[in-house]
């Protein structure tokens, strides 16, 4: 089986797996980074969102062979200790219900705010539209992204 060198959260990991293995399962099953979640496997829900070179990307559709040179950031690497302004805003607003979708939400929000630090409400609603929250914590997510944007600016 081929091996791949992946740069994840600033460290290089070598994994041996089929070339078509989605990054999601490499993270979860090979490297034990289980913060990135499985929701649909077809790019529809956003639960598996990570940053690839700073861009929010669905890891369930990304084959491991495609990303050898990229800088991959997962929820575990967003900050050392949960101190990223988006994580802090999530805590302040008490966003999570069951919590399962939230790492994907946070990864989408943090990449989005990096690009657009002063979003309008509509910007937020459109940017977050790809992430499903089955518990429908959307009002709180919207508010938390707003709060995070204030922290960042």
């Amino acid at each position: 089986m081929p091996t791949f060198n992946l740069k994840i959260n600033g460290k290089t990991h070598t994994v041996e797996t089929d070339a078509d293995t989605p990054l999601l399962w490499v993270l979860r099953d090979h490297i034990n980074l289980v913060g990135t979640k499985f929701g649909c496997g077809i790019g529809q829900c956003g639960a598996c969102t990570v940053h690839i070179d700073g861009n929010a990307t669905r890891s369930c559709l990304l084959q491991v062979s495609q990303i050898e040179d990229a800088a991959i950031t997962t929820i575990e690497g967003l900050s050392e200790d949960g101190s990223h302004p988006v994580q802090q805003a999530w805590k302040e607003i008490d966003v999570p219900q069951c919590g399962y979708c939230q790492s994907g939400q946070i990864m989408t929000a943090s990449a989005f705010l990096n690009e657009n630090p002063n979003p309008t409400n509509n910007d937020i609603r459109n940017a977050m539209n790809g992430n499903i929250c089955r518990c429908a914590s959307y009002n709180s997510i919207e508010e938390a992204v707003k709060v995070a944007s204030e922290k960042l600016s």
């Binding site: 980074l33 913060g35 575990e76 967003l78 994580q87 805590k91 919590g99």
Partner: peptide, 22 residues
Amino acid sequence: GKGNVDMDKIITGKPLFGLDYK
């Protein structure tokens, strides 16, 4: 109001759910 007791684990991606158990 009291925040979710698992808050820190949720926002930092710690193993918490059934699918995370190994």
